[in-house]
Amino acid sequence: MLTSPGYSASVSLRLVVGGAAIALSHVGPTELVVRGECVSIGPCNGQLQVIVDGQVSSKPVFLPFGISGPGQRIKYL
């Protein structure tokens, strides 16, 4: 019988806007959800970052409606 070493990847999602990193709970192909507290932000550019085991993958995004607050679905392009 083969046994697994029990490895589980460490994954973090964040949105970087104006130098501030905002934690995310969900990321889909056109929407994201803010996990914690944040202030409202108007339409802006940002960087969507997915970090897996310390390796950062980054994608430039535009938030046409900005960020309304935590727990809200935020559209991005």
Rank of each mutant, 00 (worst) to 15 (best):
M1F: 04
M1W: 10
M1G: 06
T3R: 14
S4F: 00
S4Q: 04
S4V: 09
P5S: 10
P5R: 09
Y7H: 13
S8L: 05
S8K: 11
A9F: 10
S10C: 02
V11A: 02
V11P: 02
S12T: 12
S12W: 04
L13I: 09
L13N: 03
L15Q: 09
V16T: 15
V16R: 05
V17R: 05
V17C: 04
V17K: 14
G18R: 02
G18V: 10
G18L: 03
G19C: 00
A20M: 01
A21N: 10
A21G: 07
S25K: 09
S25D: 15
S25N: 10
H26D: 15
V27G: 13
G28M: 08
G28C: 02
G28S: 10
G28H: 07
G28Y: 05
P29E: 11
T30Y: 00
E31L: 02
E31N: 13
E31M: 10
L32Y: 03
L32T: 07
V33H: 06
V34Y: 05
V34P: 06
R35A: 15
R35H: 11
G36F: 00
C38L: 08
V39H: 14
I41R: 15
I41S: 09
G42Y: 07
P43A: 15
C44E: 07
C44K: 06
C44R: 13
G46K: 09
L48R: 07
Q49H: 14
Q49K: 01
V50E: 00
I51P: 00
V52Q: 08
G54F: 11
G54C: 11
V56Q: 06
V56G: 06
S57K: 14
S58I: 13
V61L: 00
V61T: 06
V61C: 09
V61R: 07
L63Q: 04
F65H: 15
G66T: 13
G66V: 09
G69R: 14
G69Q: 03
P70I: 09
G71P: 10
G71A: 07
Q72Y: 12
R73N: 10
I74C: 05
I74N: 07
K75S: 05
